[in-house]
């Protein structure tokens, strides 16, 4: 299994050059991080340990998307590719999960579980992926900002730097894109 960040960078580059086989080697790395995170949620001491969770997620993203081996002038391209890749792998993952769920027994949910689910209500990642593609046709940059932030796990400051726009612009565009997507998902 590949683990060095340089190897991830190389695979990302190969994938962006059209090498689909690179994706097959990258997907297990993302999945390993997913399982590592899921395991830490199951073991977490108290529910709602937000700070700790955020740190874990950031670490996971750092292991996957490390730009230390990337030349400065290529960073925008690199992050763009990395976020696209995360999007593709995570959406595929969600699709597979949905398929498995449909095939299996209907879930019996206890009251406590239903409560937890309501607290952590999250958008349907597959529907979101489709809405984001519609947004790209309307406004490519907003769609990219969402891709970098939501799928790529990037901070707004880093997005501003990479896209060479002001932080304020990133925040304004994110705000409108989020409202637009929320509407799309609420209607569909």
């Amino acid at each position: 299994m590949v683990s060095s960040p340089h190897e991830v960078t190389r695979l990302l580059r190969a994938w962006s050059d059209g090498d689909e086989a690179a994706l097959a080697r990258l997907a297990p790395l993302v999945e390993a991080e997913l399982h590592r995170l899921a395991g830490s949620y199951l073991r977490r001491e108290r529910p709602g340990h937000t700070l700790q969770t955020t740190a874990l997620v950031n670490e996971a993203y750092l292991r996957l998307i490390d730009d230390s081996a990337v030349e400065w002038r290529n960073r925008a391209h690199f992050y763009g590719i990395a976020a696209q890749l995360m999007r593709r792998i995570l959406v595929d993952h969600a699709r597979r999960r949905r398929k498995l769920k449909r095939g299996g027994d209907p879930l019996r949910v206890s009251l406590a579980e239903a409560e937890n689910a309501a607290l952590e209500s999250s958008p349907d990642i597959i529907a979101l992926d489709e809405a984001l593609s519609s947004l790209a046709k309307l406004d490519a940059r907003k769609s990219q900002i969402v891709e970098l932030k939501f799928f790529g796990g990037m901070q707004e400051e880093a997005i501003a730097e990479v896209l060479k726009i002001s932080l304020r612009t990133v925040q304004r565009e994110w705000n409108l894109a989020r409202a637009w997507l929320y509407n799309e998902l609420a209607i569909s």
Binding site: V30, E33, L34, H35, L37, A38, G39, Y41, L42, T53, V57, A60, Y61, M86, R87, L90, H93, A94, R97, K101, L107, R108, V109, E113, N116, A117, E120, S122, P123, I125, V146, K149, F150, F151, G153, R178, L181, Y182
Partner: peptide, 21 residues
């Protein structure tokens, strides 16, 4: 809180919830 949680975190949470079931 729509989209406040990055996709990786959200997917991991869904995975955790499922493994409990």
């Amino acid at each position: 809180g729509f989209l406040a949680t990055p996709a990786l975190e959200q997917e991991a949470k869904d995975l955790a919830a499922e493994s409990l079931a």
